[in-house]
Write a protein that binds this DNA or RNA. Structure first.
Lengths: 243, 243
DNA sequence: CGCACTGTTGACCTGAGTCAACAAAAGTGG
DNA sequence: CCACTTTTGTTGACTCAGGTCAACAGTGCG
């Protein structure tokens, strides 16, 4: 899939960028029309099915990307196969380790995703020329660091019940920020992860995740519409279970 | 304690910066003589005893700092008192959450520490004027993010034995990078943390930490010289126990 | 329909937590 | 310098949260 380009009357906003979320809240928001055009000449919009591996741990970095739609999970794996999900990326997050030689995580499409890929050198050129862009990317890195540390508390010190509640709360508040802003007391959404991945995110087994979800259901904190879709009538009540 | 200043012959390197590690491998390394002088006019060198709280979670950010000597632990606490150490900072790390309103962690001196404090506005001014400085700070933020994610794998998926081994390996390789570079096969060092803090770092209890250390000792992987000082004759062997 | 996958539930087990006693350091004051 | 208290670390006995193993139930798809 090639990005459409509108170079007519030199340098209006590229057509594909028009509706892209990265242009509003993501990194492209700090670029002017000229830079956006420059960048769009190197980008490639890609759609990947759930389960596709987008980045392999310890592989050389050749490109970066912006998440346009869907959810990407970042994982780490021990030699014997034990896996930990170390982060989730939603639109319009930036994907990739800036200024590194090799990737430090695996990245896999958790749902069907659309990303906007840009070659390493092209983006690094742009970053070098635009302190504002680097600043924006730093803001995201710092936010991710905050998130990672929040999660360390969850992983290290919470019980299985608190972990599952924390996960649902995280998804409820992040999967559709607009919906959360509009209606911050309740939520209804599709889980971007299956039970196995939820377990890997929480440092739990599938069985424990399933049992805790059942418990939250019998306690009327959540309604499980079907295995993937969950309703949370009272987010404050859920938050109260996060420890 | 006021920083000494050497303005003679206008703008040589400030005396206190001369021997500071931050000027070599830390953020001050990217500053020119003029910027360094400008910065040193606002800095204050402070020494704090082990146990001193340097930053309180959710308090307004008023200053940043560089670690010059010693170890600082970053923690998060749940309402009921459960605590998680989410990071350790060694010289010449930068301390503080850039571009935030409030702190997102507690910071406490783990050993006696010397820090070089600089007011929020002064540093932010400097960062705004120096893309190179922001770049350097971003590099550290990205490194901390890598570290945090590595640790998430440890917290979520490793056994108590592997966690303790991982902790010792981390300290062995970080507490004195020069010594590690010089002699990468074995190590001998003082633990910067007591058993309680090690437990909080690993998501374990004091008792479990103690038992696992005893196990590593009886297995001849480590020698416990005294409760604080540890010898590791074969780092590769220790690494093999990290999972 | 039949197969493969994903999720749920139950029975049982085990690694790490809890509780408690003690030992060893590290302060503290006379 | 020594008694005395306080703090920190070790070890043992017991418990329990969450893991393991196994059976089964949905769900979707060729």
């Amino acid at each position: 899939m090639q990005p459409e380009r509108r170079d007519i009357h030199n340098s209006t906003t590229p057509a594909l960028c028009m509706s892209c979320e990265a242009r509003h809240n993501g990194m492209c928001g700090v670029l002017d029309a000229k830079q956006l055009l420059l960048m769009s000449r190197h980008t490639r919009i890609e759609t990947h099915a759930a389960g596709t591996e987008l980045i392999g741990d310890s592989t050389p970095i050749t490109s970066y990307a912006n998440v346009m739609r869907g959810v990407i999970k970042l994982t780490k794996i021990l030699e014997d196969g034990r896996q930990q999900v170390v982060g989730l990326q939603f639109a319009p997050d930036f994907l990739g380790r800036l200024f590194g030689e090799e990737h430090r995580v695996n990245a896999e499409a958790a749902s069907e995703v659309t990303i906007c890929r840009v070659p390493k050198t092209a983006l690094e050129q742009l970053v070098a020329d635009s302190p504002a862009l680097e600043h924006r990317l730093m803001q995201q890195a710092l936010r991710e660091l905050d998130d990672a540390r929040d999660w360390m508390l969850t992983l290290g010190r919470k019980t299985a019940a608190e972990k599952v509640a924390s996960f649902l709360y995280l998804i409820a508040t992040h999967i559709d920020p607009a919906a959360f802003a509009r209606r911050p007391d309740s939520a209804s959404f599709d889980l971007p992860l299956g039970r196995a991945d939820i377990g890997d995110f929480l440092g739990l087994t599938i069985e424990t995740v399933s049992r805790q979800l059942t418990k939250l259901r019998t306690d009327k904190v959540i309604t499980i519409v079907n295995t993937r879709h969950v309703d949370i009538p009272d987010l404050a009540r859920l938050k109260g279970r996060c420890g």
